[in-house]
Design a protein around this nucleic acid. Sequence first.
RNA 1: GCCGUUGUGGCUCAGGGGUAGAGCAGCUCACUCGUAAUGAGCAGGUCGUCGGUUCGAUUCCGACCAACGGCUCCA
Length: 636
Amino acid sequence: MATISITLPDNSSRELNEGASVYDLAASIGAGLAKAAIAGKINGQLVDLSSRLTDADRVEIVTEKSPEALEIIRHSASHLMAQAVKELFPQAKVTIGPAIETGFYYDFDVDKPFTPDDLERIEAKMLLLASADQKIERHEYSSVDAISMFEAMGEPYKTELITDLGVERVSVYSQGTFADLCRGPHLPSTARIKAFKLLSIAGAYWRGNEKNRMLQRIYGTAFVDKKELEAYLNRLEEAKRRDHRKIGRELDLFSFSDEVGAGFPIWHPKGAMLRTVLEDFERKEHLKRDYDIVVGPQILKSELWQRSGHYENYRENMYFTEVDEQSYGIKPMNCLSHMMIYKSQLRSYRDLPLRFFELGTVHRHERAGVLHGLMRVRCFTQDDAHILCTPEQLDAEIKGVISFVNDVMAIFGFEYEMELSTRPEKSIGSDSDWEQATGALLSALKDSGRPYEINEGDGAFYGPKIDIKLRDCLDRRWQCATIQCDFTLPERFDLTYVAPDGERKRPIMVHRVILGSIERFIGVLIEHFAGSFPLWISPVQAVVVTVTDSQIPYAQDVYRQLRNAGIRVERDVRNEKLSFKIREAQLQKIPYMLVIGDKEVEQGTVTPRYRDGKNLPAMKPEEFVDFVTKECKDYK
RNA sequence: GCCGUUGUGGCUCAGGGGUAGAGCAGCUCACUCGUAAUGAGCAGGUCGUCGGUUCGAUUCCGACCAACGGCUCCA
């Protein structure tokens, strides 16, 4: 019999009989590997274990430990779920069911939406089908045959998919009585799906288009083993515990009220203090980097919004009001007053770059279904700036913004990722504008030395942009900072500067935020720190607690002294046991509890207890002031 | 905006066609206490809003509002 030669990742080679599969290769290496194998990679291409090898292939065995394993397991789990649904609800039409970052989902077209009870039944069925050890087999068909096959099965979505694929041949994976159009690869058997859980039901549009029919989506997750599944489910629980809406209420930071209106947070004293600290920080950091602080009005004449194009493109999201027969638009963005400040005088190239910074509060009428705590609101404050510069300066300005973002994220301890979005199909501006701006963004990204991704065609119609997504301690990503180049506004408002040669030229405008919105950023901070904010941003940094009533006069003195020194201190001189007061301060996540008993009164000291339970040595109140001041200066 | 779920005192939740309960929080009193809950008593709700069915609705039905999980959109 003829043999073929296969090269392994370590560059060693093996001889196998012609027609051997990936599995045969694994088996020839070792029984253990054959058992652990779940798929293969032939010349870099993921394939099933049953795939045939040809001479001179480079082959890698994918096991549960491989990075690709999870995706395959989840994809197979989604097929298993579809099979379970079809068995329990034969009238359900299957559509698509991919693996996603946190698990998998499958969309079904059903007359009656699934209920939580259904979810349990489906999961139970899946367990049964998994343990049945059904072989998962791949078959290839011509598209024509596949279409008539799925037609016969009464699966119109599948035939639509095949038609749209526009290819000659498609692959179909089957297990038991269930068959699904799929590229693969998959596990060799359903028994290999060992740890999964269905999580939730949701509506989702067919092909993500809201004009299409709404399908019923079931989300689930799957892992290589039960232990990892448990770990993930625990992480979900932890996220629930850290939910900023819950902690926001517990720490009395903010609230929402039906009477005020959906999406309009009201900031309680402690939340407002937290904001104030962040805003002061921002002003300081912007001034350091040669930004000018500006302030514009909350409402501007509607004519101005017409000129900017917002009226045409953004009207649904805007609030309007009319006074003295004059229509005004409540600003959804801060750019217009910044434009007008630029235009208030003749600008020379010597004036540029101009960097206008505003903690601008904007109102946007977001669709009702998208509101989410502080993460998505209808009234929020952006740390917004518009940089107006010459084309030659663009490069340095973008780099400056990225290094600004980098500095700020380091202070808060966030990791982040960057994405460049390039020219979309519908866009304005010349080719050279786009080339230059995209080039500037790209070069700044390369310069940053950090990994970045490119989203082809995902930019705004008015210019390319960099989105920055920070990662919190649970590895979730949040869009906060963005840097956008804008060709429209300078054009529409006819912004110019006088160039060295005396010619009028058009400046380039960069729109950027660092934290994004104060609201969202605070939401992220709350979840990241689970409410235990670093000392420098804690709304309450310390609380003076007395052991008994006899220490009250001294405690009042200490409180006054710290307040006067600018420490955000509270006092708890209630007639309660110390342990009770400690507990309350602990639940409020106050960094320092300054315990005052007879000993402290005698010595004129306080004994700070940190919220981790450890005491600092007793110290004079002024020493504590120095300590906190120093820590805050270092952004601790 | 769309699909689904939910809406009972400040918070967490129980209950259910005959106008409502618990714990915590609050208030009062006693205890004067050294690092995560001292005890006792008191008070607090037109059961999201508006309609309908009914002798009678907080409970059943409908509409609206809001929240929650998603979709779409986004800082």
